[in-house]
Design a protein around this nucleic acid. Sequence first.
DNA 1: GTCTATAATACGATAGAC
DNA 2: GTCTATCGTATTATAGAC
Lengths: 195, 195
Amino acid sequence: MSSTRDQIIETTCILLEAQGYHATGLNQIIAKSGSPKGSLYYYFPQGKEELTAEAIARSGRIVERNIRAGLANNKEPAEAIANFVRSIAQAVESSSFSAGGPLTTVALETVNSSERLNLVCREAYGWLRDAFAEKLVAGGYTPERATRLATFIVSVIEGGIILSRTNHSGDPLRHVADELGDYLRAASNTETRVQ
Amino acid sequence: MSSTRDQIIETTCILLEAQGYHATGLNQIIAKSGSPKGSLYYYFPQGKEELTAEAIARSGRIVERNIRAGLANNKEPAEAIANFVRSIAQAVESSSFSAGGPLTTVALETVNSSERLNLVCREAYGWLRDAFAEKLVAGGYTPERATRLATFIVSVIEGGIILSRTNHSGDPLRHVADELGDYLRAASNTETRVQ
DNA sequence: GTCTATAATACGATAGAC
DNA sequence: GTCTATCGTATTATAGAC
């Protein structure tokens, strides 16, 4: 696969995360990536929308991989997930936001204006949810219960990232990690689980 | 207070919520509100940033009021909050997004580009958190515990709104409402509460 | 595949009459 | 307070040489 193409997508991911969709210009992307504008429309004939769709998909896969890798550090889902959220808190504070990626900002910006981008965002959220759900299933939850819990987990993490980014502090995410850990421990104690 | 000024702010709130900050143009605002461009810069000499700051503040106060009104329907915090989240699920499905307002989208879009807008978003999130926290305090929680729980609650609601909007379905928010209700009921049973 | 020049359009902001 | 015309600068996208 072309390195120029990859470079463009990767640069787009970074800029989308920092600025959002409408604030990120194609000129800025080609300038930062060092690629020529002719190449951009050669690799992405449908322009900005197509490029953004690819960037969102790649970002989603990377976040999914990070989730799976992070959760593998601990056998017990409650501890694994709480620790993973704490690691996001640190990532947000060190200004390397590769935790949430451009997903949330672009999802909100384009929900009413681009069906294509809305679909890829929806798909990416599904990947994240399933990564958590599979960890919960491995921990003994039924698939149905795991999916519902995973939706809750993705929600609370996304919301926590927003509060932490807005406040320039990892504290909201750390509070979220504590509460989420408490909840999951309580759930694993009271619910019927197949071990 | 001038009606023209109010009209401009209100229109801005609606457009910001549907499209975000960078996709909403001043020309679009004056066209939809029926106000002249001369008036816009008369009432908001500092332009788009000042107008948006006012719109965010107004939106934040409205959401805060909605939260307080919604939570007043039920004495027990756990039930009150779960039911409130369910009401947001319905609001999202009926396409009248006055639940989350333009807050989240603008917060993410401007976190790295406008200190003024970042500050007003941070302030608004504080109002929402405090509204939940006061309900929890009234329900017997200590102020410190209530604030932490309220941060968690705002996070999970914001995240749930994002998932529900992206999926064009109230289901994610309803799952969130169920889980949140479970958690708050469990917390109120196990924790020491001053009644 | 790459590059440059440019078209077409929209943006935020301003000036100055009324 | 209101209105219009306009400036300067972005944007996305395209055309055509190499």
